[in-house]
Simulated scan of single mutants.
Amino acid sequence: MKALPASIQVFERGWLSSNNVLLSGRDDTALIDTGYLTHAPQTLALVRHALQDRQLDQVINTHLHSDHCGGNATLQAHYGSRVAIPVAEADKVANWDVDALSFKATGQRCERFSFDATIAPGDVLTLAGMEWQALGAPGHDPHSLIFYCPSERVLVSADALWENGFGVIFPELDGESGFAEARATLDVIAGLDVRLVIPGHGRPFDDVAGALARARSRLAYLEADPVRNAQNAIKVLLKFLLLERQRIALAEVPALLVAMPVFETANARFLKQTPEALGAWATSQLVRGLAARVEGEYLLNT
């Protein structure tokens, strides 16, 4: 594994929270993505330990899914950090439009935060003495950004590219285009001279060509039958709830799914099952994949 510069630290987080990327320069500090709400105290502790007596000047979000911005408010309250978000999300955050933001749709939580600046594709940021190019990365989220540092050949890829795949292609669940955009984003990444990728989830990796090949194969598999993308989304959303709660009554699973607008849309378009049937299917899939277990009347996280 190729080493990162000393000015870049990666806090690799467990699921619920995205990874956090801390950039510490001589004159500035910034954190890219802040994890999930319930992990915010841990995020703050990690940042405080790394920075010691220094301030956190800026928080930057690749996109506004709850696992990437859930610590924003905590860091703002503690440090008074400036927050920069993707430009397309500005009105939603300014008005805290819970219907337009993804939190309500996915049954997840995020404490309200404010922002001080926006970032658009094509912008160049100077962080820790390095120039970072902001690149549009639609697919998983239509407004997502990724950040590339040409001098270090490092890419912060958010959920556009993981070592083994990428995030759920959410726009397709609503009948919007997402597969083509995800493919175009992979093409953009392939065109960069990248030696090391810092993904939104999982360890940093340097086999960029291998990761791109696996991502393209996965994308082709999902695109061949969009029902697969919908099924994957339901499993992921249920697992997220289970990670947060650790235990869910089996009888509550259908109601939890119905409470998510994204589930209703995906079910109406692709799955066409009763909540009870789909809840039973999703539960069995998590158990089969050793991501959960059933004890009595409860589904437990593993």
Rank of each mutant, 00 (worst) to 15 (best):
G25T: 08
D57N: 12
E244Q: 13
T126Y: 05
N95S: 15
T34L: 04
M260Q: 09
W132C: 01
S284C: 10
G296R: 03
E223H: 12
F115S: 02
N267H: 11
S81D: 05
E111G: 05
N267V: 09
V236N: 07
G107W: 03
E276G: 04
L173A: 02
Y298I: 02
H140V: 00
D207I: 07
N229A: 08
V154I: 15
A50L: 11
S17C: 06
R293V: 10
Q9V: 09
G71S: 09
A251W: 13
V194Y: 11
E172S: 05
A268N: 01
M1L: 04
G122K: 01
P199D: 15
A180H: 07
I85M: 03
E276D: 15
I85A: 03
N72F: 12
E131F: 08
L241S: 13
R247F: 01
D159S: 00
E181N: 07
A213W: 02
L173G: 01
I234Y: 08
F179K: 11
T265F: 10
L237Y: 06
Q231E: 09
V59Q: 09
D57H: 10
S177N: 11
A230Q: 00
D174A: 10
D225S: 02
N19D: 12
L278Y: 06
E223N: 08
T38E: 14
L219T: 04
G107K: 00
Q76A: 07
N20Y: 02
E252M: 11
S102K: 01
D67G: 08
L212D: 02
A137L: 10
N267T: 08
Y148G: 02
D174M: 14
T126W: 04
S66M: 10
A224E: 10
A90P: 02
A3S: 12
I60C: 04
L161M: 10
T43H: 04
L161P: 00
H68N: 13
V208C: 07
G35K: 05
G80C: 05
M130F: 10
L186S: 02
S17W: 04
H65E: 00
L300R: 05
L51E: 11
A215W: 14
D97K: 09
L256F: 07
R293C: 10
V156A: 13
E252D: 15
T29C: 08
L290G: 03
S151T: 08
F147H: 06
D27W: 02
L238F: 08
C149T: 11
E163W: 11
D174I: 10
H65D: 11
T283K: 05
Q273N: 04
V194E: 12
S18E: 05
A292C: 06
V154N: 09
V154T: 13
P204Q: 07
L186G: 01
T38L: 14
A40V: 07
D97V: 06
A120R: 15
R247E: 13
R293M: 11
T265K: 02
V168E: 02
Q231C: 01
H201W: 15
I189Q: 04
S217N: 14
I146L: 12
S81A: 15
K104H: 13
